[in-house]
Computed example of a mutant assay.
Amino acid sequence: MEALTGDGTSMLELCRGALLLRREYPALGDGSLTWLDAPAGVLAFRREPGFVCVVNLSAEPYQLPDHTSVLLTSGPVANNRLAPDQAAWLAVQ
């Protein structure tokens, strides 16, 4: 576990980041969600106040919806496109 601590690409640090954000954002607690339109192989939903989750299970990069900031990703986001087999948490208005 020591080898993963501080490694920004490790699953351990991804989970730690997610847990920290979960405490900060009310939208990550109880409540309803709204599924967003997305192409086949992409799951996207919105929770209020101001949160969107996108998971790209397709073979192609996916253009992220409008957002104010990227809160967390499971991999790098280039040119506002989410790579295949990646997920992103976004702050939205």
Rank of each mutant, 00 (worst) to 15 (best):
P76S: 14
A27S: 09
A91L: 08
L33A: 13
Q63F: 11
R81H: 12
C15D: 14
Q93P: 15
A83L: 09
F51A: 10
L82Y: 04
S69H: 11
L90S: 03
L20T: 14
T9P: 08
Q93K: 13
F51Q: 08
E13K: 11
A87T: 12
A44N: 02
M11R: 14
L4P: 06
A83D: 12
F45C: 10
P65G: 06
L43E: 15
R16Y: 09
G31M: 05
P61I: 04
L82E: 05
L4Q: 12
G6D: 03
L82K: 04
V52M: 03
T68F: 05
G17L: 06
G29R: 06
V52G: 06
F51L: 15
A59M: 03
V77W: 00
L82P: 08
A83Y: 07
F51C: 06
D85C: 06
S58N: 02
L4I: 06
E60F: 05
V92D: 05
Y62S: 02
P76W: 11
L82S: 06
V52W: 00
H67D: 06
A40R: 04
L36R: 05
V55E: 12
V54L: 03
R22K: 13
F45H: 11
N79A: 14
L71C: 03
C15R: 12
N56E: 01
L14W: 15
L43M: 14
T73I: 02
G29E: 05
P49S: 01
R16G: 08
V42L: 02
E2I: 15
L21S: 04
W35P: 10
T34M: 10
S74E: 02
V77Q: 01
V54F: 01
W89I: 02
L36Y: 01
L14H: 15
H67T: 10
S58Y: 00
L82W: 04
L20M: 13
S10K: 12
A44V: 03
L4N: 11
D85W: 04
L12K: 13
T9N: 12
A78G: 08
A38Y: 00
E2N: 14
L90F: 01
S10L: 10
V70F: 04
L71M: 03
L4C: 12
L28G: 07
L90R: 00
R81V: 10
V77I: 08
N79V: 09
G75L: 00
H67L: 05
D30Q: 12
P65L: 07
M1I: 13
Q86R: 11
F51R: 04
E2R: 13
Q93D: 11
R23A: 14
E24I: 05
G6R: 00
L12T: 12
W35I: 12
A88G: 03
L90K: 00
T34H: 09
C53K: 11
L20F: 12
F45V: 04
W89H: 05
D85S: 10
H67V: 07
E48H: 10
Q93W: 04
L64E: 03
W35H: 13
G29C: 07
